[in-house]
Amino acid sequence: MAERSPKVKEKKAEKWCATLAADLLPGETIWAITNATRFKPVTVGTAITNARIIGFYPAGQNAQQRIPVEVFADQVRAVEFPTKAGSTSMRVLTDEGEVNFGLLHKEEVDFARYYAEYLHRTGVDPQVARELAERRHETSASLQAEKDRISRRDQVEIFGSPMKDKWWEDIDRHSRPNELPWFIINAGSGGRLVAFEDRLLISKTGGMTSFMAGSLGGGRETTFPYAEITNIEYNGGFVNGVLEVLTPSYQGSGNHDFWRSTNKSRTQASDDPYTLSNCLPLGKPTYREAQPTLNELQQRIMEYKRPQVVVHERPASTPVSEANTAGVGLADELERLADMHLRGLLDDDEFKAAKAAAIARLS
């Protein structure tokens, strides 16, 4: 059982120790409990273990909330108990600055000083030190990975308002490992259009965006594979407009506007571009800025929809008569390829290659 200061009752100390037990490192034990408290972040007490000094809040939902303040023994440079206006606080000096564990009663000062200074002299218990080294390594690697991921975001072209972290988090949930968007059009409260290499995402989540989408507290997130997109259309007025992603399931009406649903609640505004899953309300200046990139997007969508021509050469041992009877005649095949070329399904080089292959195969 941990030692408790003169101002900590036994039942309270037992309850605190039981709550903290799940958050202790292997081999870590609590030496002492005091009433030292602080307001930001909130702690209701301070524990001194054989590895660290902990400011704790037992009602927290996870380990980070339950232990918002901590200093390990190898980080301690000095422990001070300054008094100001009749109140004494417990402060631990480290290489990175001072950590204030809050106010404590004058009858607790000597008790806290004894255990804090003893921890400073003895250092982290060797059994705990091994586990601590592993945890610090994992934390360092995780922080570096997060730093690299955030740094890579600078490579993404953003049109419109700057991106917030919570919007990036929504996009990350729809991304494959190590995948970054090609570009993003951020319409603020209207939502975001996110272009990946093979699909589009229209995301309407968070705060005012989800409210405008009629999904307060939730949001609308819709993914459109390039192979299913039939067109991307912009219907603009004098200042504002609507960018629509058209598919067999989402057909453009050409008459979406911002005012038709002003007398309806957000959950009933089914014809409002803020509500529609395939629409992004977008001002003209942002659209014009993004238009060259949207033209590239249209071209990429056409390439995804273009049929792939796979040419198989006839083995030399196959008789010509057998090749002719196995499929259509040469004239029919050339006519089919010419029609595909006229409709833009084959470019000049693809048409020439397919034509030469057909002649070689069927003549």
Rank of each mutant, 00 (worst) to 15 (best):
R192P: 02
A13N: 11
P273D: 10
G329F: 04
E108V: 11
K147N: 14
M90I: 09
Y57C: 04
R343M: 09
N186Q: 03
K355Q: 07
I171K: 04
P126R: 07
E179C: 05
A112K: 01
G207R: 10
L243N: 02
Q298W: 04
L342E: 13
Y114I: 04
S270F: 07
A36I: 09
P177Y: 07
L93E: 15
V239L: 07
A269Y: 04
L216M: 09
A195S: 12
T46K: 06
E169C: 11
K204R: 08
A290W: 07
E350K: 00
K264R: 12
D110R: 01
P292I: 01
T19E: 14
R361D: 00
V92T: 13
S317A: 09
D347F: 01
P292Q: 08
A112M: 13
G252C: 13
Q155W: 03
Q127L: 13
R314G: 02
L132F: 06
F238K: 12
V239F: 14
F101S: 04
V245A: 15
T275Q: 13
L132I: 15
F196S: 02
R220P: 00
Y114R: 10
N35Q: 05
F258I: 01
I359A: 00
D125N: 09
T94V: 07
R52P: 06
P225W: 08
E322G: 00
E28I: 11
V124R: 07
R288H: 00
Q65C: 03
A112T: 14
R300S: 13
V79N: 12
I67T: 03
L119Q: 06
G191V: 02
L280R: 05
T230N: 15
K106G: 12
V311R: 11
E350A: 14
A338Q: 13
P292T: 09
D349Y: 02
G217M: 13
P319I: 02
S249M: 08
I185P: 11
Y304F: 11
F196L: 05
A360Q: 04
R173I: 01
S321D: 09
T29C: 08
Q155D: 02
P58I: 07
L143R: 14
Y250F: 15
V109C: 12
A353D: 06
T19C: 11
Y115G: 00
N50W: 10
Y234L: 01
R260I: 13
T122W: 03
W31G: 04
I150P: 03
V79E: 05
F238H: 11
R260G: 11
I232P: 11
L334Y: 00
E138T: 07
R130T: 10
S175R: 06
S203E: 12
E233F: 07
V239Y: 14
A21L: 15
E117V: 05
L200Q: 09
H341N: 09
D154F: 04
E107R: 03
D148V: 15
P26I: 06
F258N: 01
Q64K: 14
E179A: 13
F159Q: 12
S203G: 11
T205L: 13
V69L: 10
S363P: 03
V156R: 01
G190R: 11
G190D: 00
